[in-house]
Amino acid sequence: MGFVALVGLSTLALLAVSDIFLTESKRASVGEWVTLWAKRYPMFALALTLVAGALLGHFYWATAG
């Protein structure tokens, strides 16, 4: 459980730190970078969204058991 929590949350924590830096220095936020990237590579963004959605649905919305 510790490993799963470490892997799952550490990237988010690092991104939160970068977001703090961007917000404090009044730069364009992470969301704007993500939006730009998704507009530039829409199919890749769609594929990643499907993968992420399937994973989240699998991990957090399993009804069996």
Partner: peptide, 12 residues
């Protein structure tokens, strides 16, 4: 998030 990570790892 750090609190959650530390709690999970320390318990493990």
């Amino acid at each position: 998030l750090v609190w959650g990570m530390v709690s999970a790892v320390s318990y493990t």
